[in-house]
């Protein structure tokens, strides 16, 4: 699904991202971990063509993202609050994305029922603009928005942060189901090692922009990561 070649993003002289080669297969659930400033968000922004790479290229389905907008039709993403249109209500926001994805209102209503539990009755029908909602609820709106239209590729930056424990557990299950049922390729970054090892089959550790570990999730993955970050 994704192929990264000799990718470098420099800010001044320091490299925020410096990846020689990385391949992410179709249907893979790919976890990205690293300390603050490791380059996780920058990598996601490069994949979404929101930042310009200093060198190298990123191919999604063999097409460079920088040259062609094709990837937008099958990619869902939520990185931070800049992905929310904060003066809309959650319903209007979902509706906006659904229309872009050519999904009817009826289909949208059916789709949103999957998230009834996750929303915990705090999102829909509240007559509030997104900007007036709590950080946790904003996050939920962004995550669900990115999943509208069953994208083949889903990119989420720290989806578990700001969520309460119950919502974290529910989200974990939602992501596992999404990948299992729809074969979605998922790129997820997180600071929570236990969550990420549960959701993702493959974990890559970034440090100062470089890949320092690339492991496949197994019984020892969590321990291995914990000992690395200790």
């Amino acid at each position: 699904m994704i192929q990264i070649n000799k990718l470098r993003k420099l800010y001044g002289k320091s490299a925020a991202v410096d990846i020689e080669s990385l391949k992410i297969a179709s249907g893979e659930s790919f976890g990205l971990v690293g300390n603050n400033g490791a380059g996780k968000t920058t990598l996601f922004k490069l994949i979404l063509d929101l930042n310009k790479a200093t060198n190298g290229e990123i191919l999604v389905k063999d097409t460079p993202v920088a040259l062609n907008d094709e990837w937008k039709s099958f990619t869902g993403s939520f990185l931070d609050e800049t992905f929310l249109i904060n003066f809309l209500t959650p319903e209007e926001y979902f509706d906006f994305i659904a229309q872009l994805q050519r999904i009817t209102s009826q289909e949208l209503v059916t789709f949103l029922t999957i998230f009834k539990d996750f929303f915990n009755d705090e999102i829909l029908g509240k007559r509030k603009y997104i900007r007036d909602m709590s950080k946790g609820n904003q996050k939920k709106i962004g995550i669900v928005g990115s999943m509208i239209g069953d994208p083949e590729l889903l990119i989420l930056d720290e989806p578990f942060s700001n969520l309460d424990p119950s919502s974290q557990i529910k989200l974990k299950q939602l992501l596992i189901d999404q990948q299992k049922n729809n074969g979605t390729t998922m790129l997820i970054s997180s600071h929570d090692l236990s969550h990420i090892t549960e959701v993702c089959e493959r974990i890559v550790v970034l440090e100062k922009g470089k890949i320092v570990k690339d492991i496949f999730s197994n019984d020892n993955a969590l321990e291995e990561l914990e000992s690395y970050f200790a």
Binding site: K45, L48, D49, L50, D69, K72, S73, T75, S77, L79, E81, T82, F83, L84, I85, N86, I97, L100, Q101
Partner: peptide, 13 residues
């Protein structure tokens, strides 16, 4: 400004 990233990452020509 606040949501331009979202517009650019979505399927909008």
């Amino acid at each position: 400004s606040f949501y331009i990233d979202m517009i650019m990452a979505n399927d909008i020509s």
